[in-house]
Nucleic acid binder design. Sequence first.
DNA 1: GGCACAACTTGATCCACAGCTTTAA
DNA 2: GGTTAAAGCTGTGGATCAAGTTGTG
Length: 441
Amino acid sequence: MGYLCDFCGDQRSLVYCRSDAACLCLSCDRNVHSANALSRRHSRTLLCERCNSQPAFVRCVEEKISLCQNCDWLAHGTSPTSSTHKRQTINCYSGCPSAAEFSSIWSFFLDIPSMGEACEQELGLMSINENGNKSDLVPPEGTNLSGSSQVTDLPTKGKFWAGTSSIPVSDSEPRILDQLPEPGNECMPKLNCPGKKVSGICEDDNLYDDFIMDEVDLELENYQELFGMALSHSEELFENGGFESLFETKDMSASAGESHCQGAVAAEGSSTGLVNAIQPACSNAASADSMLSTKTEPIVCFTGRQSQSNISFSGVTKDSAGDYQDCDASSMLLMGEPPWCPPCPESSLHSANRSNAVMRYKEKKKTRNAGCSVLFDDHIRIVSLNDGQLCQSHHQKPLFEKKVRYASRKARADVRRRVKGRFVKAGDVYDYDPLSQTRSY
DNA sequence: GGCACAACTTGATCCACAGCTTTAA
DNA sequence: GGTTAAAGCTGTGGATCAAGTTGTG
């Protein structure tokens, strides 16, 4: 990745979106992440000003520069003089903050020349309606809105707490980016989502600066293997298998997961039992909690009208499922009536119920997909198989296998105009514009 | 228990198009 | 064998439909 925005390729990239694995300028960041409720939940952070490719993790007060973990170590871990520099952790943000809100998130915001300037130019010209988005400015739970928690005299050696996350981050040595996590911590880094009990999506809360998609993918695949088949099988896969066998097994496990969901509820018990068996292996209780909250979709099954019954959802009770629905996407889709609907007349009760049911389904589907999505870049492929091998046929996709493999395509699709859900030619009349959400007629 | 119907769930399909792969020159 | 151009293929999200499943009388 270079200095230019991954999306427009024009402006200088300033922020990094982990969910999209993309470096964006402020304008595109705002456009892309205001497209829908889910994208607004993507957590972003500053881009490392040294390597311009990794998310920044600390800001050096002395040098007034934001650095990723590797650059931080290179800058401060090797020199006795620079290791005494005061550094602040940099927190993530979500939603579509204004310049003022940026300043409140990062006290040093306006100290960044390119930021302040870009902010004036870009945010000042924003056409996106900010109404209703204030609440989208949601720092990860537990996050101090001051944004940068002071970690004066950040120890260069040893452990410290990165930002407000509850994850101890070792700074003892620079991480090799392709390095797999240590076995002992394998489940922790990607599964620990402090405070997010029922979000269903863990993507946003990581403050892991050695975050790389290869690693995540491996762990997600591992997850599917864990829950789709016996644990020993997955271990065998990692020992014997390259990625190809991994992918083959992924499909199998996905199918197995589906058969669980479609079929006998009794199977849930065994799956849940597996989860319980795994839990103690996670040293961090929050990790286990997050594991349940983020990835239990294939385990908890909904058949027929069970969604209306008192069934637990992703390991939470109906009540907490209500909390789940309170997150922005759900609240919009579940609670809101379409604006053109009359306010609950008796005659429309039936259709309202019907549309609510469809909304419920769509929300569930969206959550399910989001929970297992892994973003790749068009130019970075994990394996050099052609697409046909990765997924034999568009129509033979195993259920629950939805994975976003190409972030750039997703980004395009996210902003593409549609008519009744179908893409329309550029310039044609459309009835849905994800960017402006206005009608063309 | 079996039937009919309503309500609900869910997979398949469609669209445009950028970017990738394959093939031929 | 290496390069280039053209053709074909793939994947992306939302709306819609139809088929399947479940609940009720």
